[in-house]
Every structure is written in structure tokens, then in C-alpha cells.
Nucleic acid binder design. Structure first.
Length: 407
DNA sequence: TTCGCTACCCGTTAATAAGA
DNA sequence: TCTTATTAACGGGTAGCGAA
């Protein structure tokens, strides 16, 4: 080997070493950048979320100021503008793809998944004895556990989406329960859960309305979708470290044996082709006594918590309990010519819901207000009766409708 | 005091759909 | 095809009650 070739060899080796070092550096840099990117992505998500909360606060404050100035005024233009702008920008909640507006929290959730039911595992479930009228229908409203059933709704037999193997989703079915507020970390509030008709071939829509946010109904394609929003928001404002998991059927009361039995007893249940008939038997009187006493205690506890931090003159739970039938009627009256068991005392406008599945739903308060008869103590909910859900196809439409609504 | 029963809350996980 | 998000079934822990 000559001296020159040896030099060349050394040089090559050195170059190789340099390249290897460079490659190592680049790989490390790539890793670092990747880490930074993920971190930044998370931060962006968090910032978007915080921005959303702040926008909420701002618009709420603005609305409060606005309503204080004049009770007959229309909705604050700012609220509508921000809503439209935000929707058009596609602002979403982290982890949940929830699009928000000032009037509604819409949950463009996926359709319910097929149930993974174990047909062999059904066993007889025990139900509480309930009061019935002369015809044998349950006397409503009925308190079952922490839930108050105000309407059992009507079974839809001609559309499969309104039932599955385990649950029936009667249109108009409404329950109420007290749950931690989504806006006030020290309060509880009354939550009304209603199953509404999506119209046409669309399946059921699950609506959740908090008494302290009556103008912000949450509507989703599944019970879980709607309640997850409530659980998440309630936990977030309390800074609770929680998985935010929520079982929709649980919270809607559909899993409760007594409620499931009442629904199963409704006319038309036998015609449902996928529904697996379940066996129920009335629980022993002593067991029922204990169960009901426990439930009563739990309800009292929740109500006490709810009232504990109320300002004077704002007894939210008792008054809202009296007011809630209007909320339920507002959502339900469109689908039902007459209430099956429970007749809310107020007449309301019928919501209009299009037949297109998996669309966003936006509730818009038409103006001016059309209510003349209203309890004085419920001025917090003065727009409730006039809310009308409108199905939105796209972000643009959502933005447009928000703008149109502003006048 | 213990036991049996039930409800409620919460977390885990299988199933599924949608997007990358 | 893999990853991520979502739904809903299911189970565990806890609590309250009445009866033994």
C-alpha cells in the first residue's frame, strides 16, 4: 500500500466518522423536534380550550349585562358574532370534538356502537314497587333513586335506531337529576335528560339541559356523548382529576331496573325486533324500603349541596324543579300530539329537527320572546321556551345561521 | 354486629368507526 | 394498516337500609 493510498483511506475513514456523527446529531435533533412538536401540539390544544372557556365567560358576562339592562332586549350581538366566528374557525374542545356556540353545546358524536351483549347473562332484575293509576300506568313524576322520571315517552316501533338489544329509547322520555353545575364549582344544579326524535331516518337525539344553563342544551347522538360533556365540564371547573368517563345509559336512567321495566311495559315494546325481553320482579318490601330511604337521603344531600351556596332569592333546585317541565315540553312537544303520562303546564313552540343523521344541532332563540305567562322567579330562563333546534350541515351553515340569527 | 340487598359512582375494557 | 376517539357493557368499591 502506497503512502498516498493510505492517506486516502484515512481520509475516507475520517469522512465516514464525520457522517456518522452528523447522522447521530440529526437523529437526536429529530427526536428533540418531535418531542417539542408533540409538546407544542398539546399546548395548542390546551390554549384553544382555555380560549374557549374565556370566550364563554366573556359572552356570559356580556349577556348578563345585556339582560340586566333590559329584559325585553334581544340576544347580545357579540355573543352571536363570537359564536359564528368560533364555529367558522372550527374551534373544538380538546379530546372531544365538541363544537360550541353561545346557545348550544353541540356534540357531533359518532352514532352508538353495536352493543356487546351477552345473551346468556341476562338475569332477573329487581324493581321497586311503584304507584300506578287505574289503567296500570305509572303515576308520574316518579322518583327512582336520584332520578325523577317525568315522562316515559313513546316507543318508536318503525325505526330500528330507537332501540337495541338492551335499551329502548322512547321519544320524549325525560328524567331529571341533581348534578354538579358546569358553570359554578360550588353548586349543584338540576339536569334534565330527554330523548328526542331526530326525525326521518335519523336515530334518537339525546338532550341534556342544565337548569343553570337553560339556553345551552347539549345534544348528541348517544346518551354517553351528551353526558360526557356534562361530566367533563363539571370536573374541569372543579379541577378534579377524573377520567371523565360517563355511562350514558346510567345517567339517563336506562340501566335502572325500575325504569327499564316501566319502559318495557310501554305499548309497542313487544314489536321491537332487536330488543331482548328482560325479566323483572318486584323486590322484597323491606329491600324496597331501604332502597327508597337511601335514595331519599341521597337526593336531600344533593339538594342541600345545591342550595348551600345559592344567593338569597335564588332557590334554584326547588324552583327549577317546578320550571323543568317547560324545558322538557320544549324539546318534546314537537313529536307528541299529547303527553302520555305527564302534562307540563306550559305550552311551547315545537322544535324543528331535520331528517339528516349525524348533523350538528344548533338551538337558536327566535326573537322577540313569545311568552306572556311566566313565573316571575324564572327570569333566568326567559329564553327557554323559544329555543328551536336547527340541524346544521356544515361549519359554514352553522356560522351562517348564527349570523342570520343575529338579525 | 353481621348479612343480604340494592343504588350510585367511577374506572376499565371490548367493540367499532374514522382518520392518518 | 395502525392509531385515535367514542360508545357502552360491566365490574369494583362504597354506602345505606332492614332484618336476623
Amino acid at each position: 500500500m502506497t503512502t498516498s493510498s493510505h492517506k486516502q483511506h484515512l481520509s475516507k475513514h475520517k469522512n465516514q466518522q464525520n457522517l456518522k456523527t452528523l447522522l447521530r446529531e440529526k437523529i437526536q435533533l429529530n427526536h428533540a423536534l418531535k418531542k417539542e412538536f408533540i409538546k407544542a401540539k398539546k399546548e395548542v390544544k390546551m390554549l384553544l380550550f382555555e380560549r374557549d372557556l374565556l370566550l364563554d365567560d366573556i359572552s356570559r358576562l356580556h349577556q348578563d349585562t345585556f339582560t340586566d339592562e333590559s329584559d325585553s332586549e334581544v340576544q347580545a350581538p357579540l355573543a352571536v358574532t363570537t359564536s359564528a366566528a368560533r364555529v367558522s374557525q372550527g374551534v373544538t374542545w380538546p379530546h372531544s370534538a365538541i363544537t360550541k356556540s353561545e346557545e348550544t353545546v353541540t356534540v357531533p358524536s359518532a352514532p352508538p356502537k353495536r352493543s356487546r351483549i351477552n345473551r346468556n347473562k341476562f338475569k332477573t332484575r329487581r324493581v321497586q314497587p311503584i304507584q300506578r293509576d287505574q289503567r296500570g300506568s305509572p303515576i308520574l313524576p316518579l322518583q327512582i333513586g336520584v332520578l325523577t322520571v317525568t315522562n316515559l315517552g313513546k316507543i318508536v316501533t318503525d325505526r330500528d335506531a330507537f332501540h337495541n338489544e338492551r335499551y329502548i329509547f322512547p321519544v320524549g322520555y325525560t328524567v331529571q337529576r341533581v348534578y354538579p353545575s358546569m358553570v359554578n364549582p360550588t353548586n349543584n344544579t338540576l339536569i334534565t335528560s330527554t330523548i328526542i326524535d331526530g326525525g326521518g331516518e335519523a336515530g334518537p337525539k339525546f338532550q341534556v339541559v342544565a337548569a343553570d344553563q337553560p339556553d345551552k342544551p347539549i345534544v348528541a347522538n348517544s346518551a354517553t356523548g351528551a353526558w360526557t360533556v356534562v361530566v367533563r365540564k363539571a370536573n374541569e371547573i372543579r379541577q378534579r382529576d377524573h377520567s371523565n368517563s360517563a355511562s350514558g345509559p346510567d345517567y339517563f336512567g336506562l340501566r335502572h331496573p325500575t325504569i327499564a321495566k316501566m319502559i318495557q311495559d310501554l305499548p309497542g315494546a313487544g314489536e321491537l325486533k332487536d330488543y331482548i325481553w328482560q325479566d323483572f320482579e318486584e323486590m322484597e318490601p323491606r329491600a324496597a324500603k331501604g332502597v327508597m330511604a337511601t335514595a331519599e337521603k341521597k337526593r336531600d344531600h344533593l339538594e342541600q349541596l345545591a342550595c348551600q351556596h345559592q344567593s338569597p332569592g335564588r332557590k334554584i333546585i326547588r324552583e327549577d324543579l317546578a320550571m323543568q317541565p317547560r324545558l322538557e315540553q320544549q324539546a318534546y312537544s314537537a313529536q307528541q300530539p299529547s303527553m302520555q303520562h305527564y302534562q307540563p303546564p306550559y305550552s311551547t313552540l315545537h322544535p324543528t329537527i331535520s331528517a339528516v343523521p349525524y348533523r350538528l344541532v344548533q338551538y337558536i332563540s327566535p326573537l322577540p320572546l313569545q311568552i306572556s305567562q311566566q313565573p316571575a322567579s324564572h327570569h333566568h330562563h326567559r329564553n327557554v321556551n323559544t329555543m328551536q333546534p336547527v340541524m346544521i350541515d356544515s361549519d359554514e351553515e352553522m356560522a351562517q345561521s348564527g349570523t342570520n340569527n343575529s338579525g
